[in-house]
Structure formats: C-alpha cells, structure tokens
C-alpha cells in the first residue's frame, strides 16, 4: 500500500504532522530524474572541493613529450595539446563551474530578491526604476552583454590589483591569477542574470498580496509576521527555489560560453568552456579532447535542470499526483 492510499483509506492511522518541506522531500525522492540531479550536484560539490587531490598531476603541468594522447593508464582521459592531463583539468574545471554557479546564484538571488521585493512593496518610482533596469538588461542578448561587461570589468580589476600591489605590496602569484578571472566572471554574470529573479519575486509578491487566503488570514487575526512567514514565503519560495536551481546550471553554461569565446577564464586556468575552446584545433584528429569537457558540462547542466524540474513538482502540492 502506498502512502497516498494509506492516507485516504486507513481511518485509524495517526499520521504524524508533516510540513510542506517534508512532503516535498518525500516527493523529490520518488522522482528518478531529480535523484540523478541530486547525485550530480553532490558529485560536483565533492569534486570541486577534493578534485585537485584526486589526481597526481597539477592542472598546469605540461609534458610536451606526450601531447594529444588518447586515454591510457597514466592519463585516463588523455592529454591535451600541451601534454596536460585532461582528467585533472576537468576536475579543476568542476571547481570553476561550481564556484561560478554558487557565487553567481547567490549574487543574482540576493540582488533579485532585494530589488524585486523593494519594487513590489515600495511601488512608485522605485518599482519603475527596477523594472526599467530589468527591461534594459533584458533587451541585450545575455552573452553579448556579459562579454562586454567582462572585458570592461577585467581592465578595472587588473588596474585595481596593480594599484594594490603598488600601494600595499599585495602581490598575486601566477597560479592564483585565475581568481581574478573568477571575480570578473562573477561580476559580469551577476549583472546580466539578476533580472529574472527580480521579476519573479516581484510578480510573486504582487499576486500573493491580492490572494484571498491572505485576507482570510488577516480575518483570523494573524500578525504580519505570521502571514509573511507561514503564508507568503512558502507560497513564493517554491518558484524561487526552482529558479535558483535552474539558474545554477545556467550560470555554469554562461561561464563556459564566455570562456569559450575567450573573455572568461583565461588560460592556463581550467574551465570546461575554456578547454573546449583550447582544443578546438584538435577537433578533427582528437575529437575526445573537445567532446569530454562538453559531455561533462552537458551532464552537469542537465542534472541541475532535472533537479529544478523535480523541485518544481515537489514544492507545488497542487501538481502532485494524488
């Protein structure tokens, strides 16, 4: 007997009180694609933290005697045009992808929620300003705008770094220069991708505010905090969580696109997009050098999209199969 049938027919069962979140988790665990997404997310987290220790090579270590090799015992996924171990670079690319996904998502969520909520609650010129900014951002193709911002931004970051070096003697080692690239990517992608969440949050608040159950809640004498915490947030958080999850994959894909175009992570830093771009010349002779980072990127983004879909179903009780 399934849990659903039990709830319908067993009159004497005493079901424990469950919250929306417990229900959602149970629902999510029944969705195989979502489980795949969870698995991918955790694998990515693990690899991005421990990746560098899993491989005996350094991601910048070159071996010019063994370039463009296929998979072997020494190099499981082969080597690229400079004799660097592909597996190591893919593991390092996972760190880049995860950091970009995490920080850009945090950035866009904070910016989007703050601006969207401010627009919805304050209305008037604040709302108009936020929404026009969103319209303007939307009017440009994301990647084009991100590429433009990152080019401008990179110069500023380099100037700042130079300034800090002169002023305070803060130097940055060659191996850590990739973190400057991260900074540029985080900034440009956040500035390009915030508007989706701002519009989502604003729309949610505006529509929920008019809902009768909010009025009914007032008629019960509930305080504003009760209404916000028990009714507004659970009803608006679902779509936001879904947007965050899908946005995570989207941010990684955007980073790969920027790096592929050469305005993202700069060599020798490792990013899946940068690896595809780097090895594109080898496409005809060693297709695996291009395919492997591409496949990894596709699997990870797909995983996050599956997870987003699963969460969408799980967090929306009305869409559940009865």
């Amino acid at each position: 007997m399934t849990a659903d049938a039990g709830a319908q027919h067993d009159m004497f069962a005493m079901p424990e009180q469950r919250s929306l979140w417990q229900d959602a988790l149970e629902q999510l665990m029944r969705n195989r694609l979502a489980i795949f997404g969870v698995f991918v997310a955790f694998l990515l987290l693990f690899v991005s933290i421990f990746g560098p220790w899993l491989s005996p090579y350094d991601y910048t270590e070159q071996n010019l005697f063994r370039i463009n090799e296929g998979p072997s015992i020494d190099h499981w996924l082969g080597t690229d045009g400079l004799g660097r171990d592909m597996l190591t670079r893919i593991l390092h690319g996972a760190r880049t992808a995860f950091l970009v996904g995490l920080i850009v998502t945090i950035g866009t969520t904070v910016l989007g929620v703050v601006l969207g909520a401010a627009g919805a609650f304050l209305g008037g010129w604040v709302d108009a300003l936020v929404m026009r900014l969103a319209d303007i951002t939307m009017a440009f193709p994301d990647i084009l705008l991100a590429a433009f911002i990152s080019v401008v931004f990179r110069e500023k970051v380099l100037e700042l770094q130079l300034h800090l070096q002169e002023q305070y003697g803060w130097t940055i080692s060659e191996g850590n220069r990739v973190y400057l690239d991260y900074l540029v990517i985080f900034g440009s992608l956040t500035l390009v991708q915030w508007y989706g969440k701002a519009r989502l949050v604003r729309g949610q608040i505006l529509s929920l505010r008019e809902k009768e159950f909010i009025e009914a809640e007032r008629a019960l004498g509930a305080s504003n905090w009760t209404i916000i915490l028990s009714h507004l947030v659970p009803n608006s958080l679902g779509p936001l969580i879904v947007s965050i999850t899908v946005g995570f994959g989207g941010a990684m894909l955007s980073e790969a696109s920027l790096s592929f175009l050469g305005v993202g992570i700069q060599p020798p830093g490792a990013s899946w997009g940068e690896m595809i771009s780097d090895n594109l010349g080898q496409w005809r002779f060693n297709p695996h050098l291009v395919v492997m980072p591409g496949v990894v990127l596709a699997i990870v983004v797909l995983g996050f999209n599956f997870l987003g879909d699963g969460l969408n179903d799980a967090l929306n009780p009305e869409q559940r199969r009865r």
Partner: peptide, 22 residues
C-alpha cells in the same frame, strides 16, 4: 478581535485557504 471574537467565512474556500499548508 478578528478570528477570536468575530470570525469570517469566505465565499470561495479554494482561494481563501493557503494552498501550501495542510
């Protein structure tokens, strides 16, 4: 007073009750 001394029954329970709360 609301809810405790004066209570209200609304027309459409589907919209007057929160969809995400048991």
């Amino acid at each position: 007073i609301r809810g405790a001394r004066i209570a209200m029954v609304f027309q459409e329970p589907m919209t007057a009750l929160t969809p995400t709360m048991t």
